[in-house]
Design a binder for these strands. Structure first.
Lengths: 153, 153
DNA sequence: AGCATTAAGACTAAATTCATCTTAATTGTC
DNA sequence: GACAATTAAGATGAATTTAGTCTTAATGCT
């Protein structure tokens, strides 16, 4: 299906949370789980994955926890999603040259390539730092929807 | 996963094939299956689905088969894909207002909305008639890539 | 009547999704 | 050094989706 998995969604939530914390602050699984509404033991596996893919650093033992592995403005939405789901390919024919041997004659292939690059462009253009800033803005305007915000004020 | 299912891919192949046939020509499952490289009995289920969603008309019995239900330029890629997979929602939070109660405070939501509308725009802009024309062009240039075709002509 | 063909849907195997649970390993603190 | 807190690792499992096959019924031509 053309839909993000829970893995991807939860990873984004976790990273946005980490990015919103003061510099150097270590966050716990339970803390992220509660604020971001992600099942705790599921989140644990996701964090593991994010550590292995180099977006997050963990420390074991008492006073352990998780921190971003690099500044929030150097982590994009795309990187986060691909850390969980692997490279984005909107259709199997885009996985690699030759994956689909109808490639050269298939008129649909270029359309998928176009769609995919537009999607990726959007996901590349948002960093965790951007998202934290956006979240703060949303909070200041007090839970109004975008549309209403425009009309009312 | 952010990936088209086989259902969607095969439906597109079938419709492109039907669109490429002379006006009024009735096509058989076996014919579509062989030229488009789709398992025959699987294709049968897909055609059923396309009939029910109104993109294709079928006739039973001897001399029966399938025809487009309307002109090829009135069937878009998006319609074809949504006929098989249902409405496109890149993330569950886009299914409907209120699906995700974090909506108003979630900074990621607008990004998904943006990405989705760009994807849909691409899929809306290609009709089966366009694709048949593109396929003919590809065949004339003898398996060259798009990029090269642009240079040459 | 008989044959060709689609319609409908039951059935299945494999993969993916979305988790939970248990146990081991690690580390700071007392 | 013992202990408590915490993450790491991975086994396990239920539900759903995916991808496909197969069978039987219905239909329409000849």
């Amino acid at each position: 299906m053309l839909q993000l998995t829970r893995d991807g969604e939860y990873a984004v939530r976790a990273l946005v949370y980490l990015a919103s914390q003061p510099d150097g602050k270590i966050s716990l699984i339970s803390e992220i789980s509660e604020t971001q509404e992600v099942p705790k033991s599921y989140l644990s596996k996701i964090m593991q994955h994010l550590v292995r893919s180099g977006l997050v650093k963990s420390r074991r033992g008492a006073k352990g926890g998780f921190v971003l592995a690099r500044p929030a403005h150097q982590i994009t939405l795309r990187q986060t999603i691909e850390a969980m789901e692997g490279p984005i390919h909107l259709n199997v024919c885009l996985i690699k040259k030759g994956e689909c041997h109808r490639d050269d004659l298939c008129p649909v292939h270029p359309v998928w390539r176009d769609a995919q690059s537009k999607l990726i462009e959007v996901l590349d253009s948002k960093t965790m730092a951007d998202l934290v800033r956006d979240a703060e803005k949303l909070q200041r305007t007090g839970n109004k929807t975008e549309a209403r915000r425009v009309e009312v004020k």
